[in-house]
C-alpha cells in the first residue's frame, strides 16, 4: 500500500533522513520509534506531502507524492505533532472547515461530524472555541479532523505527547478502535506506546532505520542480547561495589545509574549469557554489610533493544 523508496532529506548540509526504505501493507499499525531528533517527524512530513524529499519517493497505491501529491493527500489523514489547530474557531466550525476542504458533501457534513464527535468523545465541547479546550481535548479534535473524510491511511505524529496518563489511555483507546479498519502510521519516542498500539515497530536513529519488525520479533532480538540485572544497595561506596560485582564470573560490567548520598545507589550490571546471574550477585552482596534493597532483571521489553540500538545517540 505504501512504498517508501530511498527517502532522503537534507537541511543544508544536515542529513535529517537518510535513504529510508519501507513497505507498509494495508491494515498495518506501524510505530515509528526513535529518540528526539531521529528524523521521525521529517519522515512523516515527507510522507504526507508537507515537505518535498531531497531524494527518493513515497508511492501510495501506485501514486507518487512527487507527481500526484493532491491525490495522495486525499488518501491520508494527518495529525501533526501538538495538534496545531485554529484556537479562535469553535470545534464544530473547525471540523466543518476541514470537511469542506476534504470535499465532503454539504448534505452529509453534519452526520460525518457528529459521528467523529461521538467516536472521539467531543459531543460536549463542539460549541467551544478550540483555544479553550484542554490539551487532551485538542488532541481529540486533531484526531477527529484527521479521520473526518474516512481516509485509508492515518498518520499521527506523537499523538500522546504532552498528555497526562488518563488522556494517554483515552487517545490510545481511540487509535486502537480506528486502527482496526485502517492503515495507521504513528511516531513516538515512548516505547510503551509503540508496544501497546502497534503491530510493527520501525526504529529510527539519526535518520536511518536501525530495526524493523513486529513487536515479537524485536523481543526475540532482546533475548539474544547480554542480560542485565538492576540492583539497589545502601551503605556501599560505588568503587567497592563496582569492584565486588565485576570480580564475579557472571558479571561483565557494572554501571552506576543513580546515587543519592547518603541514600541507596542504583546499579545496572551487564552479565554474561548463561544461567540466571542473580544468585551469584546475591551471595556476593550477602558477604558484605550492605543492605540489598532490590535485585531484579528488567523485563525484556523494547526498552532494552531501543537502548541498545540507539545507545550512541542517548550518550
Amino acid at each position: 500500500m505504501i512504498n517508501i523508496k530511498g527517502l532522503t532529506k537534507y537541511y543544508g548540509d544536515l542529513c535529517a533522513v537518510d535513504r529510508i526504505e519501507l513497505d507498509i501493507a494495508e491494515g498495518e499499525i506501524v510505530g515509528l520509534l526513535g529518540p528526539n531528533g531521529a528524523g521521525k517527524t521529517t519522515t512523516l512530513r515527507m510522507l504526507t506531502g508537507f515537505i518535498t524529499p531531497s531524494r527518493g519517493d513515497v508511492v501510495v497505491n501506485g501514486l507518487s507524492i512527487r507527481s500526484s501529491a493532491l491525490d495522495v493527500k486525499r488518501l491520508m489523514g494527518y495529525l501533526p505533532e501538538s495538534a496545531p489547530l485554529y484556537p479562535a474557531m469553535l470545534a464544530y466550525d473547525f471540523l466543518c472547515f476541514i470537511a469542506k476542504m476534504r470535499g465532503i458533501e454539504a448534505s452529509s457534513r453534519p452526520r460525518v461530524i457528529a459521528q467523529m464527535a461521538s467516536l472521539c468523545g467531543l459531543e460536549e465541547v463542539m460549541h467551544l472555541p478550540v483555544g479553550h479546550l484542554s490539551k487532551g481535548l485538542k488532541q481529540r479534535v486533531g484526531l477527529a479532523q484527521a479521520m473526518l473524510a474516512d481516509p485509508e491511511i492515518l498518520v499521527l505524529d506523537e499523538p500522546t505527547s504532552g498528555l497526562d496518563p488518563n488522556q494517554i489511555v483515552e487517545i490510545r483507546r481511540i487509535i486502537k478502535r480506528i486502527g482496526a479498519s485502517k492503515t495507521v502510521i504513528l511516531s513516538t519516542h515512548i516505547l510503551s506506546e509503540a508496544e501497546a498500539a502497534c503491530d510493527r515497530i520501525v526504529i529510527i536513529d539519526k535518520g536511518r532505520i536501525i530495526a524493523d519488525g513486529s513487536t515479537e520479533q524485536l523481543r526475540n532480538e532482546t533475548k539474544a542480547m547480554a542480560p542485565t540485572v538492576r540492583l539497589e544497595i545502601e551503605g556501599a561506596l560505588w568503587e567497592n561495589a563496582r569492584r565486588l560485582l565485576e570480580d564475579l564470573d557472571v558479571v561483565e560490567k557494572a554501571e552506576l545509574l543513580e546515587v543519592s548520598f547518603p541514600g541507596p545507589m542504583k546499579i545496572e550490571v551487564t552479565c554474561t549469557s548463561g544461567p540466571d546471574p542473580r544468585p551469584a550477585i546475591y551471595a556476593a552482596v550477602k558477604q558484605t554489610d550492605w543492605i540489598l534493597l532490590e535485585l531484579r532483571r528488567p523485563s525484556q521489553s523494547l526498552e532494552a533493544i531501543f537502548r541498545h540500538l540507539t545507545a550512541e545517540a542517548i550518550r
Binding site: 512530513r45 504526507t48 506531502g49 493532491l70 493527500k73 486525499r74 491520508m76 496545531p84 485554529y86 470535499g103
Partner: peptide
C-alpha cells in the same frame, strides 16, 4: 508560527 500551516498543507490543497 502556530504550526497550522502544516495541517493546512497536508489537506488536499496547494
Amino acid at each position: 508560527s502556530r504550526g497550522s500551516w502544516e495541517l493546512l498543507l497536508t489537506l488536499p490543497v496547494t
